[in-house]
Amino acid sequence: MIRLEHVTKEFAPGRGIFDVSFTVDPGTIFGFIGPNGSGKSTTLRHLMGLLAADGGKATIGGFDCWKQSKEVKQLVGYLPGEISLPGDMTGADMLDLMQQLHASDPARRQLLLKRFPFETKTKIRKMSKGMKQKLALVGCFMKDAPVYLLDEPTSGLDPLMQERFLEWIEQEKHAGKAILMSSHHFPEMEKSCDRAALIKAGRIIVESDIHELVRSSRKTYTIVFRTEVEAAQFAMQVGVEPKRLEVSFQTDETLSLNQVIAYLTQYDVRLIRPSADDLEQVFLHYYGEEESS
């Protein structure tokens, strides 16, 4: 449903997006992960037909995102990363306008307002960041589009609203929607996405099934020993610095877990604590490799 093929847009030497390619199928959620300025929002703006690429091609539903942007916009519910709405309108006024523009079902609007409640009579300029984000979410999903492009969708939401958002997009996924979501919030990406791509300096450095990404990262373990002498001896074997009774290290191609277990038979071990497998570890793993190469 969503397809980018070698899309490149250079704003200045080394700034922009370069050779970006991926696809998002109906009934899937694709995560787009990267630091600020890495090219996530630029990529989404190309898909919305707001920018023309220097090279490559972007399509949604088979329509060219630049040449057929009118048809593309009819298929897409878009949530920008920076919410900018008319300050003198109330939330209800804004939703009324969106409902007219997209011929949205009033019942769907009410369902979304129950899921993401806020005071609709408040003027937008008086709303908190969280209220504006809920207004934007309701307006985006009210369209009931087959494709959603979501740029940092949970920004400003409290934990309860974040969980409700994840439940909602899971429902939309099962309804056959194609969802592309950028976020810095690693736990929500791991919970919700089927596939993900990491982008840095405008280039995708890895793309994979979300669980494969997590499994492929180096695992960090912390071992607690009975004595500092034992901790120091083990730290020397695995090539790290001890912290009194504790030693933290990562397993990789050169240090397997089987090797570590063999070493540990020599010592009086009090505790073995593995780190949680999450996307933040994947992020640090891949970005660390890029910086050291």
Rank of each mutant, 00 (worst) to 15 (best):
I2M: 00
G14L: 03
T28V: 09
I29D: 08
I29N: 06
G31Q: 04
G34M: 00
S38C: 05
K40N: 05
T42H: 06
M48F: 02
G49L: 07
G61R: 04
F63A: 03
D64F: 05
S69W: 14
V72A: 01
L75K: 08
L75M: 08
V76F: 00
V76R: 02
L79S: 04
G87H: 09
M98S: 12
L101R: 11
H102D: 09
A107M: 10
R108Q: 11
L111V: 15
T120F: 12
K121H: 13
S128V: 00
K129R: 11
M131I: 06
L135Y: 05
A136W: 02
A136P: 02
L137M: 04
C140R: 03
P146R: 06
Y148N: 02
Y148S: 07
L150W: 07
D158W: 07
L160M: 14
W168P: 12
K173N: 05
S182A: 09
S183C: 04
C193K: 05
A196N: 07
S208T: 11
S208Q: 14
E212A: 14
L213R: 02
L213W: 07
L213I: 05
R215Q: 13
S216P: 05
T220F: 15
T222D: 06
A231S: 08
Q233M: 12
A235M: 05
Q237K: 13
G239W: 11
L245D: 11
T254Q: 15
L255F: 03
L255E: 00
Q259G: 08
V260K: 08
Y267P: 01
R270P: 04
I272K: 02
R273S: 15
D277H: 13
F283E: 05
H285R: 08
E290R: 08
